[in-house]
Design a protein around this nucleic acid. Sequence first.
RNA 1: GCUCCGAUAGUGUAGUCCGGCCAAUCAUAUUGCCCUCUCGAGGCAAUGACCGGGGUUCAAAUCCCCGUCGGAGCACCA
Length: 514
Amino acid sequence: MSAAEQRERLADLAPDRLEDLESEDEADDHPLPALPNVDAYDEVRMRLAPNPNGPWHLGSARMPAVIGTYKDRYDGWMLCRFDDTDPETKRPDLAAYDAILDAIDYLGFEPDDVVRASDRVAVYYDHARELVELGGAYTCSCPAEEFSELKNAGEPCPHRGKDAETVHEEFEAMVDGEYSAGEMVLRVRTDIEHKNPALRDWVAFRMVDRPHPREEAAHYRCWPMLDFQSGVDDHLTGITHIIRGIDLQDAAKRQRFLYGYFGWEYPEVVHWGHVQVDAYDVAMSTSTIKAKVESGELTGWDDPRAPTVASLRRRGIRGRAIVEAMVELGTSSANVDLSMSVVSANNRELVDDETDRAFLVRADGPGVDGAVELPVTDAPEAGTPPYHPDHDGRGRRTIPVDGAVLLERDDCPPAGERVWLKGLGCVRREGDGLVATDDPIDVVREGGVDVVHWVPTEENVRTRLRTMDGDVTGHAEPGLAAYDPDELVQFERVGFARVDAHEDDETVTYYAHP
RNA sequence: GCUCCGAUAGUGUAGUCCGGCCAAUCAUAUUGCCCUCUCGAGGCAAUGACCGGGGUUCAAAUCCCCGUCGGAGCACCA
């Protein structure tokens, strides 16, 4: 009986068992757990809510990777909403808005809509006014520290009992910019004795003296806090599922007070833990990376040592490889470590088959012992290794010998010993040079002769390979000059690399992984 | 101090809701062997985990309690 027949038969005998079977199958097909309560909604609607205070580090890629994957799975809708309501502490970087949209595209997703919170300030003001009408908020001029003490003691501040008219007037004065930073806030009235101090009468709006970097928003001085802005926007944009970090665990609890006043239903919410990526010395935080870029310690956001999306992209890693790794992390609320080897393995799987091979003899750099120049006698005029060992049909490269070759020092055979120059043939070390022998390939299989890569001393391409450990310089086979920027090659016995640029004196490549 | 949350091999993950098919899945990693004109790919194998202690039960990774460890919030940041 085939699987389909079995299924049909089961449908007759025990339809409820069939349902069980199918829900299990569904789980098997998806690495991510099912979203909660999906059936209660006509459409799954989610949002990415990046703060554009800098280009994305690797951890940020988890957001589009997971949310985008859910969007595809449920045929849902995805908003990219820039939560750029802090012109001071997490000041927006004007270049980051597009950099983030580029990163989303690189990762293979497309938001159905893009909005900026800084364009929607009037909407937040309107909702604040409504909240004041409903008695759900009050203006408060307590210094932050004083309020904090009262709050921790579970005691209301004197402003909590203000009449609606005063609150209304003072909020309008906030909107009109009549206060300076720290002088007045609008608080949501929650429960000042709530057992969780984090939820007591939180700030919804505060004053910021420094103008927003976006011209369109530069005139505002009264800015909403995340809990207010995000809460209002999630409702207004019909978000059904919120997926965000555990640092925002209490945000949902705070926002429920707001939703209570407005009579709104709170969306489903999933919190995941923090991601760390091994393999990096640089801390994965926007501000840390920004500081290192500004000080010149990193050459840019796409420096190979930077734990950023732009860096992996420049190294030739496919967005898909990152997405798959992020999706495999799941949505556990425990903190997780992402192993770069998983990203590398994913990428290798994606690119290996289509990537041409090439020789790079490394001469200088971290972990490199130098290159040695050796005259070659009696050898053929050129070596002809294949473009890809698994695809003969793609043809062979032609690498001239021109009387002398460069080998990496580690590959250089001692006097009297043989080595197989890949694609060329067997040579023996005699004095300061190499002499071709007539040995068949069997000496490699049976005789313990090593196969090594090489380039001609005369005709080669000066190459820089930028790696996470620093730059390696060396010489590549002449054919490397023919690759366009953005193409990948695998330097045999070294690793995969992306061709970045052909400069006057050298070709620059970025190392991806072994 | 108050309030939440979490814990399966080096890493991630499946299984936990609804206890038995779990001497625990898959991937990655490491090691060995085979294959190979790469240290890539491919094939085979090995390594390696249910945080601890109690309880419930015929039966516990799974349910309950206590502990330990880790994380988050208590911002006029997001």
